[in-house]
Simulated scan of single mutants.
Amino acid sequence: MGGGWIVIDGSMGEGGGQILRTAVALAAVIGRPLRIVNIRARRRPPGLRPQHLTAVRAVAAISGGRLRGAEVGSTTLEFIPGRIKGGRYRFDVGTAGSVALIIQALAPVLAYSDSPVEVELTGGTDVPMAPTIDYMREVFARVLSMLGYEIEIEVLRRGHYPRGGGRVVVRAPDPPEGFRARSFVERGYLKGVYIRSHAVRLPGSIAERQARSAASLVRERLGVVPEVEIEAYKPHSDPHLGPGTGILVWAVFDEAVMGGDSIGRKGKPAEVVGREAAESLLEDLGTGAALDRHMSDMAPVYLALAEGDSTIFGAKLTSHASTILELLSIMVDGFEYRILEGGLDSPFKAELKGAAVAPR
């Protein structure tokens, strides 16, 4: 795709960092210069924060792009993309900023690389207000695989708020050069429910209590015995900065993967952490949807770039999802969407017309 500058109002819709990350990623993929104004205008403090800067600088580096206004606190950013190149890259948030949200920005870009690409990220792996790194590994990456995109996410060290220091390697060993359309409406047969619970720089019994609480609720509601993995460490062999805990509960179906996660904090009982993750998954499963609340706003990015039409049944049309659909319709020529059923903060079905975006 060619053309002049795309101008995006960063205060549109939910007005958060996801607009920035998605817009910069899309600009790199389609090769259009981008100007974003009013970045996080309604947030306090407004403007770019360190984790946002890491995301846009990472996209710019991998795409050979140029940035203007890439500073903490800036409310305007200009990005002129170049060519997306493979190789090895390394980026450090410098805080406990979410690695998962940086992966969210990078993943569409890596798919259009001219050769295999590997990115090492340092920051927060399990932090508030973002999907956990286990969610990205076990749900996000599996859904992308269904679109013909194999992405590998390896956790070298976990990082929790406020210390961060987590290390994650993301690989796209065989970039697909585009995506295939796929509908996510029917889930199919339930193959199994899985739990991964971890505790770092804390007693391993905390991870076990989280898992027991989640497993008990899954057995009670679904009549399924989950497969449980406990990640805990002896004090002398724990490589993490910590302390911190977290849990992911995910369900694998023939045609879908859905998950719910939660992280611990000081004073929050382990049983509550485990129950929160299980309840999040069970609530989304109860809607009959094939995409959970997180993937309901992440999957449309790939389906918009795909060749062909898709229909999705999402557990919740969040403000994030609604905003991303509108952003895609502005930035991606040829993409169209139509909400078939449901509304904001409710389960929804949407029809997406892919734009068949090929490598430049």
Score class of each variant (00 low, 15 high):
Ser237Thr: 15
Phe253Pro: 06
Ala358Tyr: 13
Leu190Val: 06
Ala41Val: 00
Lys316Tyr: 02
Gln51His: 14
Gln104Phe: 15
Thr245Leu: 11
Leu241Ile: 13
Val72Thr: 02
Glu336Asn: 11
Pro50Thr: 09
Trp250Glu: 06
Asp254Val: 02
His240Ser: 14
Gly65Lys: 10
Ala214Gln: 00
Ile151Arg: 07
Phe179Gly: 10
Pro50Ser: 06
Gly16Lys: 06
Gly10Glu: 05
Ile247Tyr: 08
Asn38Tyr: 03
Val155Phe: 06
Ala105Met: 05
Pro173Ser: 11
Met12Lys: 10
Ile36Lys: 03
Ser216Thr: 05
Gly354Tyr: 09
Pro176Leu: 10
Pro128Gly: 05
Val119His: 13
Glu138Arg: 12
Pro203Gly: 13
Gly259His: 06
Gln210Trp: 03
Ile103Ser: 05
His52Arg: 06
Pro46Glu: 11
Glu177Trp: 11
Gly244Pro: 04
Gly259Asn: 02
Tyr135Ser: 05
Gly124Lys: 13
Lys349Leu: 12
Glu154Gly: 02
Leu67Ser: 05
Val117Gln: 08
Ile339Ala: 01
Arg167Val: 15
Arg221Cys: 02
Gly123Ile: 03
Arg360Gln: 12
Ala211Ser: 12
Val37Arg: 15
Ile263Pro: 10
Ala290Met: 09
Leu26Cys: 04
Asp114Gly: 09
Tyr337Ile: 03
Pro46Thr: 08
Glu307His: 14
Ala321Met: 04
Asp345Ala: 10
Ile230Met: 04
